[in-house]
């Protein structure tokens, strides 16, 4: 146990995800030996993120104004919505530069065992967005794990009566890998979703 302020800092750092007691101690002593200006910059960034960042009123992504940069952009296609679990997924899809539509962040996936049901996600907000009839396609880009698949199944069933085109991201072989190392579930999915090569 250290004295007052140092121990406080270690305790606070230890509450962060993935930071154990040893790591917390290492970070605390790094901060103690760092330049005051560097520490002040870190403090400023922490305060700023809490004060300025909020969630987009339309899609639920992180934003600095009431709407996020993507929802404000008039060049984005308003007829396609890509449904993702977290804001992190928006960034991952944006990196591909393949998608020009808008997003909807659910805030997680259906996981009955963790007590997370459809009512705990931003599904009602999604249905409200679809009410004006502008959207023609919905891309379900939830994680390719069991919870993500269950969420996609639930949404597809809910959206069926609306007559929209509902698509799911393809699953299959990772680019740059060897076929022999693929597990049977992934390889099976790759076969299911194979496409014809038309030249």
């Amino acid at each position: 146990m250290y004295e007052g302020a140092v121990q406080n800092l270690i305790d606070e750092l230890g509450r962060l995800p993935g930071v154990g007691p040893k790591s917390a101690q290492r970070i605390a002593f790094h901060l103690l030996s760092a330049e005051t200006a560097d520490v002040k910059r870190l403090v400023g960034a922490l305060v700023e993120v809490k004060e300025r960042v909020r969630f987009c009123s339309v899609c639920g992504n992180v934003a600095e104004e009431s709407e996020c940069r993507i929802c404000r952009d008039p060049r984005r296609d308003t007829s396609v919505i890509c449904v993702v679990e977290e804001s992190k997924d928006v960034v991952a899809i944006e990196r591909t530069r393949e998608f020009r539509g808008r997003y909807h962040v659910l805030g997680g996936a259906i996981s009955p065992i963790e007590g997370v049901g459809p009512d705990d996600l931003r599904i009602k907000e999604l249905m409200t967005r679809l009410a004006d009839g502008q959207v023609t396609e919905l891309i379900l880009a939830t994680d390719p794990n069991l919870e993500g698949e269950a969420t996609a199944t639930y949404l597809a069933r809910l959206l069926k009566p609306l007559g929209l085109r509902v698509t799911r991201l393809a699953s299959g072989l990772p680019v740059g890998g060897d076929l022999e190392y693929a597990d049977e579930v992934t390889l099976g999915r790759a076969f299911e979703g194979r496409r014809s090569l038309d030249f």
């Binding site: 009955p112 069991l146 698949e149 269950a150 199944t153 639930y154 069933r157 597990d183 049977e184 579930v185 099976g188």
Partner: peptide
């Protein structure tokens, strides 16, 4: 190694999954 993957058929049917 997979012996049986029951997740696939279950997740395709929401009541069965829950």
């Amino acid at each position: 190694d997979t012996l049986h993957a029951y997740g696939g058929p279950l997740v395709a049917d929401y009541p069965r999954y829950t």
